[in-house]
Design a protein around this nucleic acid. Structure first.
Length: 428
RNA sequence: GGAGAGGUGGCCGAGUCUGGCUAAAGGCGCGGCACUCGAAAUGCCGUGUUCCCGCGAGGGGACCGUGGGUUCGAAUCCCACCCUCUCCGCCA
């Protein structure tokens, strides 16, 4: 695939790029060396192209002479010599292009100016808290204990089937997955205006590069080597690649997509954390939101999408907070990101349940998704955003914990009851 | 899995046998103009992407699924790969 990353931006604003790299803690690429090789590349390219022009012109003349029945051996010999020069130059040019492309793909997206500087979650900024934390007259249990005691959550059987970090859900827990998929899509599609998509759960390498999962996060995803297919770590991958290599009409923007998919993550770096329960699994479920929009609108869309994710938490009456990520927690491809954290009584803290990010044109460049403002206008890259709306497994954990009763049952939020034939309680 | 057909511009579709005058006929769509009270119909004109140099005017390179090869020269010939479609088989 050809990577259309904008080296112009780096040529013009190298300091801004370096600053973002430093703040994100992503400094593997030497920008100065990149710029040096870039100017070297351009010098050689000019030479190469003028040689090609010479070859084209002489070849044309050869053709003309032959048609007129004339000799052209002298010209053929001349072109042969030019070709030798072209061959050696092409080698150099390709080598430089390889270096530049490799470097470009490893440069993170530039941060938005709102993003606070900081290395880790300490520096994240809480924007607001919504909802009342429940108060219990008893010691609240962890969701995995609630699930196990109700006989609807089983990790040992899951281990037999697949190994650690998987779950088997049964009865009302299994049904809750289905209920939440419906509730979330009903709201995102019915009220918030998204188009419902049911995509493939496997993606090819180009798609993974397009959204930025590769090459940076190769160790976090499952790969089916025999076919070079990746299990999608999020529906962001298929949804953002829907319009890869296309030029959209400005009138069609924004385009809004919502999809339920399972998500698969190797989570190699997270060993030892959240080993129990539904929080950190190799397989989980999620309804994902993706928007393609005009560049000048993407930060408004970001706020809008946060509210769309919030609408689910509010529908479920779960207490949560909205947090603006600091530079160190803003991922490689993102310019600005909010997390929604749900209150988890057994942790006695808030746990991430949604993440909403602006990728500006980062993914659009890699996926070559563009739009045209005017009939004769030049194509520009769209901006892409995505957000969870929400992570279903964690939503189930949050419902179990926040809605538990002293006798170990779970009271269903009102919005979920219709999906349980009007029942109000999960009691095994 | 077996047999066959095919991948050309926003879309459809010629060109491939017989390599050069082909960024590529024609049509549709789209934009503009004319005709009209207005519209339809009709007519005329214009309509690919990308990179490099240049303030600009402009000049040049690349691109006909992808990657190699042959040749002075490749959409066109050769090789490999990918994908799509049709039929048959198998399968949830």
């Amino acid at each position: 695939m050809s990577i259309l990353l904008d080296i112009n931006f780096i040529r013009e604003r190298p300091d801004k790029v370096k600053d973002s790299m430093r703040k994100k803690g992503e400094e593997e690429i030497d920008i100065d060396e990149l710029l040096q090789r870039d100017s070297h590349w351009r010098r050689l390219l000019q030479k190469l192209e003028s040689l090609r022009a010479e070859r084209n012109e002489k070849s044309k003349e050869i053709g003309q002479r032959k048609r007129e029945g004339m000799e052209a051996d002298d010209l053929i010999e001349e072109v042969r010599l030019v070709n030798e020069e072209i061959d050696s130059l092409e080698g150099n040019v390709r080598e430089l292009e390889g270096y530049i492309e490799e470097a470009m793909i490893n440069i993170p997206n530039v941060l938005h100016s709102d993003v606070p500087f900081g290395e880790d979650e300490e520096a994240n900024v809480e924007v607001r808290r919504v909802g009342e934390k429940p108060s219990f007259s008893f010691e609240p249990k962890a969701h995995w204990d609630i699930g196990a005691e109700l006989g609807i959550l089983d990790t040992e059987q899951a281990a037999k089937i697949a190994g650690s970090r998987f779950n088997v859900l049964k009865d009302d827990a299994a049904r809750m997955v289905r209920a939440l998929i419906n509730l979330m899509l009903d709201i995102q599609v019915g009220k918030n205006g998204y188009r419902e998509i049911y995509p493939p759960f496997l993606a090819n390498r180009d798609s993974m590069i397009g959204t930025g999962q590769l090459p940076k996060f190769a160790s976090d995803v499952f790969l089916i080597e025999k076919f070079d297919y990746f299990l999608i770590p999020t529906a962001e991958v298929p949804l953002t690649n829907l319009y890869r290599d296309e030029i959209l009409r400005a009138d069609d923007l924004p385009m809004k997509f919502a999809a339920y998919t399972p998500c698969f993550r190797a989570e190699a770096g997270a060993a030892g954390r959240d080993t129990r329960g539904l929080i950190r699994r190799h397989q989980f479920d999620k309804v994902e939101l993706v928007q393609y929009c005009l560049p000048e609108e993407s930060y408004d869309v970001l706020e809008e999408m946060v509210s769309h994710a919030e609408s689910i938490l509010q529908a479920l009456d779960l207490p949560y907070r909205v947090v603006l990520m600091c530079s160190g927690d803003t991922g490689f491809p993102q310019t600005k990101k909010y997390d929604l954290d749900v209150w988890m009584p057994s942790y006695n803290e808030y746990v991430e349940i949604s993440s909403v990010s602006n990728f500006s044109d980062f993914q659009a460049r890699r996926s070559n998704i563009r739009f045209r403002r005017e009939k004769d206008g030049r194509p520009e890259f769209v901006h892409t955003l995505n957000g969870s709306g929400l992570a279903i497994s964690r939503t189930i954990a949050a419902i179990f914990e926040n809605c538990q009763t002293e006798d170990g049952t779970v009271e269903l939020p009102a919005s979920l009851q219709p999906y349980f034939e009007g029942r109000r309680l999960i009691d095994g």
